[in-house]
């Protein structure tokens, strides 16, 4: 019986070395282009098809499952050192569809589309009935906690005045009644002691980012805030080698290509940890 029609693609196993190398290059690309939220790590390769590409190379069409780590997107810590957010901490899963070109043993991303989904309340409750759940980032208590924590940090830090870049995560803790918040900050051209109107403070040309974790506890007659910030060294920013112009990477909506991407080699470790401050 004549063999069936030859498929225009081949399907290696999802755990083959070649598939895993393409998947790791894809996750690396995602993390190098993330500006908000947290780095993601590869959890499972769901599907792979490899298409021949004229005149040279092959394109891996991958469907990947990722998991959120606890490193902020702008944290220079190598991904391997970023711990995965566990179920009891209200994990977040990513689903990515990626096209990775392999040519002359080089891997470059041609297309990436990702979205992320927090685990269900029920799943968290199953492993930890008392654990706090993620709150909406615009929850008034979460926003207030981030503002109060940043004000406390600036008040006790006699260097640059830091502005809020984004609130990355918030949780409302029932007992003791408190709000836990994680947020990213950026240094401005103002000095904390001389700030009259923060609106006039501009982010530094050579960006200096930081990442803060804080708890605001409601007390009788007031509130108490404890905040710890890690300020990252300014990084010599090198443009990430873009895929060849003939096939510009079409980044997913969540990835912004605007800012150049620090080269992994040039990243310095976090420089300064300040806090906790109460």
């Amino acid at each position: 019986v004549p063999a069936g029609p030859r498929l225009p693609y081949r399907e290696p196993a999802c755990d083959d070395l070649e598939t895993e190398q393409a998947a790791l290059a894809a996750v690396d690309y995602i993390n190098q282009n993330l500006r908000h939220g947290y780095k993601h790590t590869l959890n499972q390769i769901d599907k792979v098809r490899v298409w021949q590409r004229r005149p040279f190379g092959e394109v891996y069409h991958l469907e990947l499952d990722t998991l959120e780590t606890q490193c902020h997107a702008r944290d220079p810590t190598p991904l391997a050192n970023c711990s995965v957010r566990q179920v009891f901490q209200h994990a977040v899963e990513g689903d990515c569809e990626m096209h990775v070109l392999k040519q002359d043993d080089r891997l470059s991303v041609l297309f990436a589309k990702c979205d992320s989904t927090p685990d269900s309340r029920e799943d968290v409750r199953k492993v930890c009935p008392q654990c706090p759940l993620m709150a909406p980032l615009n929850d008034t208590k979460v926003v207030h906690a981030a503002d109060a924590a940043l004000a406390a940090f600036n008040a006790q830090n006699n260097g640059s005045y830091f502005k809020l870049l984004e609130i990355s995560r918030g949780q409302l803790v029932p007992l003791p009644a408190s709000t836990y918040v994680e947020f990213a900050v950026a240094a401005t051209d103002c000095v904390t002691t001389g700030v009259t109107d923060p609106a006039n403070c501009k982010l530094l040309a050579e960006k200096q980012y930081g990442f803060c974790k804080a708890t605001l506890t409601e007390k009788l007659g007031g509130e108490e805030v404890a905040v710890t910030c890690t300020i990252f060294q300014t990084q010599p920013v090198a443009l990430q080698p873009q895929p060849d112009a003939a096939n510009p990477a079409s980044p997913p909506p969540a990835l912004d290509q605007a800012a150049p991407v620090p080269s992994a080699a040039g990243l310095a470790a976090a420089a300064l940890v300040v806090g906790p401050k109460v």
Binding site: A13, E20, T41, L42, N43, Q44, D65, L67, V84
Partner: peptide, 27 residues
Amino acid sequence: KGAQPGIAGGAGLVPPPCPGRIRHFKI
């Protein structure tokens, strides 16, 4: 008791090519 024809004694089981292994946990 005759062995079932055609069923390998487990030695020939090949894992499905996809999805691949889970590196952390599934949610």
